[in-house]
């Protein structure tokens, strides 16, 4: 318990150093664009691939499990849309990205720490936390809505493809289902949630990477710890945010 409090204190202090005015805005902006590319654009293919398949599998699963004649066929499209919009594209996708992006950040910063690159920045008088971490957090938080929207599109598209290719449900019924009782607020809710998750992924991974002590073994450990901790926090915050935004 004491260790957890100590770690939390360290995390808060690191964030305090991170969220200060950048030394050079031009440098910060350039760094942020690089991070958007590295953490966001580079994740596009995995987001598209997973979303497409999960959307398709969801349609098959729901189609196979709804056998009652009292439940209309368009429910398959409706459920696929709700699952993709409310949970899959934000929470599950962020859990997957915690593995890809989180381990990338933690290992990059950890390697910089053990090879004294962070010390070199400090000795030059550069606020290393602000220079290295802020562009990662800002870049990822700003780009995650794009990833989430793309995931939604391809998730629902995967289901559409399944409806088109199989005889389980007609395309017309699927289309009716995905438009049925649609609330645009669900997209807002999902995007806000994913931005919180993006902050968790980038900041927690930065904390573990930045504070590595030792060598290559510790860099690997930090990377694993960051993924585990981010995943736990994402699930906890999912519950909190859902209660705050959708709870009655």
């Amino acid at each position: 318990m004491l260790k957890a409090l100590h770690n939390f204190g360290e995390y808060v202090l690191l964030m305090q150093r991170t969220f200060s005015v950048p030394e050079r805005f031009g440098v910060f902006f350039r760094q942020m664009l690089q991070e958007i590319y590295k953490l966001g654009v580079d994740s596009l293919w995995i987001v598209i691939f997973i979303s497409l398949f999960i959307g398709a599998v969801l349609t098959v699963q729901v189609g196979l499990n709804i056998t009652s004649p009292l439940i209309p066929d368009f429910t398959v499209g409706y459920i696929t849309r709700e699952v993709v919009l409310l949970e899959f594209s934000s929470t599950i996708m962020c859990l997957i990205l915690a593995g890809k992006v989180g381990s990338n950040i933690a290992s990059e910063l950890g390697t910089m720490r053990v090879t004294e690159q962070i010390d070199a920045l400090e000795i030059m008088g550069v606020n290393s936390a602000n220079y290295l971490i802020l562009p990662k957090i800002a870049g990822f938080v700003l780009f995650i809505p794009v990833l989430v929207i793309i995931s939604m599109f391809f998730g629902i598209g995967g289901g559409y493809l399944m409806a088109y290719l199989s005889s389980m449900i007609t395309v017309a019924k699927y289309e009716f289902g995905i438009m049925f009782w649609f609330s645009p607020f669900n997209i807002t809710y999902s995007v806000i949630k994913s931005m919180v998750f993006a902050f968790i992924i980038a900041s927690v991974a930065s904390y573990y990477g930045y504070n590595v002590r030792g060598g290559a073994l510790q860099v690997g450990k930090a990377s694993t710890n960051s993924v585990v901790m981010s995943s736990v926090l994402i699930l906890a915050f999912d519950l909190i945010i859902t209660n705050l935004m959708l709870g009655r």
Binding site: T111, M112, T115, E116, Q117, D119, A120, I123, M124
Partner: peptide, 11 residues
């Protein structure tokens, strides 16, 4: 100015 043991160049 500092010269580190492992050079500490930015990769």
């Amino acid at each position: 100015g500092m010269l580190f043991q492992g050079s500490a160049l930015f990769d």
